[in-house]
């Protein structure tokens, strides 16, 4: 009897739960579609424009959202053969790889010491590092200009290798501190007892276990250095030293003449490396790598 009554009481509850769930799903999908359209329109416009001829882009009568006169790769060909695009690309690649390497070495070491090795003032220092991230580069470039000039790296992409870490290191360190702190402390104690030095503990235990965090930080550092605009705009002025972001814009916009096709082709090629990096690293970016270390 009581079971039957219980079943009756449960039935409307289940119905109401499933109704709630349906509404939640519908709302989620509506917003998902709106945001997908919002974020996919610019890349679509880029692709369409990059595959058009200059003549078609200039013709106002045609629909800008479709390719009416057939696909052409002329924009890519001209960009890669006649413009300085490849130089910008090479410079950006060198700067980004160096910055990512420097950032990861500095921030992993800093985060390990701040997050795991208890010492006086480590908490304040960790907060201080993060606070430096809050100073915008549009303010920071003025004092940095003096420094870059003083070390003789003005108008050299090596100057970017020097200044970009001011943007990447604080945030990456902050991400890594969080990851390192989430690793159970018994793990380093076990490693200490097993005979590991602090360096061995870092390389053999912490880095493999905190790999998702390191990958997140790497992606962040890569994206920031690849897309940085303010510093190269302020510190670089020769085309042979220029990076993609500023170089493409400066070489393809002459006064009020915009080479839209090439600009879009350049933007597409420039966007490719971060995409590739995401695609490769996201496979490894799995949460819960510490599963099994301790009692779940």
């Amino acid at each position: 009897m009581s079971t039957a009554a219980g079943a009756l009481r449960r039935a409307p509850l289940r119905a109401s739960l499933s109704r709630n769930r349906r509404w939640a799903l519908i709302t989620s999908y509506v917003f998902l579609v709106i945001f997908a359209i919002f974020f996919l329109v610019p890349p679509y416009s880029m692709i369409v424009t990059a595959l058009k001829s200059d003549a078609e882009v200039a013709r106002m009568a045609t629909n800008p959202w479709i390719i009416a006169n057939g696909i052409t790769f002329d924009q890519f060909r001209i960009l890669l053969t006649q413009a300085d695009f490849l130089i910008f690309f090479k410079n950006t690649l060198i700067v980004t790889l160096c910055v990512v390497a420097i950032t990861m070495v500095v921030s992993v070491l800093a985060a390990f010491s701040l997050g795991r090795m208890r010492f006086w003032g480590s908490g304040i220092l960790a907060t201080g590092i993060f606070l430096t991230y809050l100073v915008p580069d549009t303010l920071l470039f003025i004092p940095l200009f003096q420094i870059v000039k003083a070390v003789g790296l003005l108008n050299s992409y090596w100057g970017m290798v020097l200044v970009y870490p001011t943007l990447t290191v604080p945030f990456c360190t902050w991400i890594m501190i969080g990851y390192f702190q989430s690793i159970p402390k018994e793990l380093d104690e076990a490693a200490l007892i097993d005979g590991a030095s602090h360096m061995q503990m870092l390389t053999k235990i912490f880095i493999p276990v905190a790999l998702p965090g390191i990958i997140a930080a790497t992606i962040f550092a890569f994206t920031v250095s690849w897309a940085e605009f303010v510093y190269p705009m302020a510190f670089l002025y020769s085309p042979d030293q220029q990076v993609l972001t500023v170089g493409t814009v400066m070489s393809l916009i002459r006064a009020d003449v915009y080479k839209w096709g090439m600009l879009m082709a350049g933007a597409l090629i420039a966007a490719a490396p971060p995409l590739v990096i995401y695609a490769f690293l996201m496979d490894y970016y799995i949460a819960g790598l510490t599963a099994g270390a301790t009692k779940g």
Binding site: P184, E186, A191, L192, I193, D194, A196, T290, A293, T294
Partner: peptide, 29 residues
Amino acid sequence: PPKDRDIAMVFQNYALYPHMTAFENMSFG
């Protein structure tokens, strides 16, 4: 330091190295 005391410890929550196999866990030290 702990490593020079020649002791071994079994922790309450195991403290196993999650990225290593059982063999690697045992052979690490």
